[in-house]
Simulated scan of single mutants.
Amino acid sequence: MFGYRVPAPDEAMLISGGRRGLGGAPFRVVTGHGKFVPPVFRKTRFLTLAMCEAEVSETCVTKQGIALTVTAVIAFKVGNDHESIVNAGQRFLSDQDQMSVLTGRIFAGHLRSIIGSMTVEEIVTERQKLATEVLETSKTEMGKIGLTVDSLQIQSIDDGATGYIEAMSAPHKAAIQRQAQIAQAQATQASAEAQQAAARNQAEYARQTAVVQAQYNAEVDRAQAQSAQAGPLAQAHAQQEVLAAQTELALRAAELRQQQLVAEIVKPAEAEAERIRVLAVAEAERMRIQAAAAASHDRVALDRMLIDQLPLIVKEAAGGLSGANVNVLNGADGLSEIAAGLVSQGLTILDSVRKNLGNGEGAEARAEVALRNDPGSPNGRPGKSADGPIDIQ
Rank of each mutant, 00 (worst) to 15 (best):
S84M: 11
T71A: 11
K139S: 00
D158W: 10
I85Y: 00
D158M: 13
G163M: 12
Q153I: 08
F76D: 06
R112I: 06
A88P: 00
Q64N: 09
S84R: 03
A108F: 03
A131R: 08
E133F: 08
T132V: 15
T125S: 10
R91A: 03
R112Y: 10
Q98Y: 12
S156E: 14
T137D: 11
I85N: 05
T148M: 08
K63M: 15
G143I: 00
L68E: 09
N80V: 11
V86T: 10
Q98S: 05
V73T: 15
R91K: 07
Q98R: 08
A108K: 04
L102W: 03
G160E: 07
K63C: 12
G104I: 02
I114P: 05
V101W: 02
Q90Y: 01
M142E: 00
F76K: 08
I66G: 09
S100I: 06
T119K: 07
V86W: 00
T103F: 00
T125Y: 06
S113V: 04
T103N: 03
L102Q: 08
K144A: 08
L135G: 03
G65M: 10
L147S: 01
R105I: 10
I165Q: 07
A75T: 03
A67S: 12
K144M: 04
V73C: 06
F107Q: 02
L68R: 10
F92T: 01
R112A: 06
T69M: 12
T103E: 00
E136T: 14
I165H: 09
G79N: 00
D97F: 09
G146P: 02
T71L: 15
S94F: 14
I157N: 08
E141Y: 01
M99L: 01
A88L: 07
A72M: 13
F92K: 02
L111P: 07
G116F: 07
D158I: 11
M142K: 00
A67Q: 09
V73M: 01
D81C: 14
F76M: 04
I145C: 09
D97L: 12
K129M: 13
K144I: 08
T71C: 12
E136Q: 14
E136R: 14
S151L: 05
S84P: 06
V124P: 03
I165E: 04
T148A: 05
K129R: 14
L93N: 04
V78E: 01
L147G: 01
G116P: 10
I115G: 05
E122R: 07
K63L: 14
G89Q: 04
Q96N: 10
I114H: 06
T132R: 11
E83Q: 13
G146L: 03
S117N: 13
E126M: 14
L111A: 01
M142I: 05
S151E: 03
L147K: 04
H82I: 15
R91D: 03
H82V: 11
Y164R: 11
E136P: 05
R105C: 05
Q96D: 08
F76N: 11
V73I: 09
G116V: 11
T162C: 11
V70W: 09
I165V: 13
Q98A: 04
A108M: 08
Q128T: 02
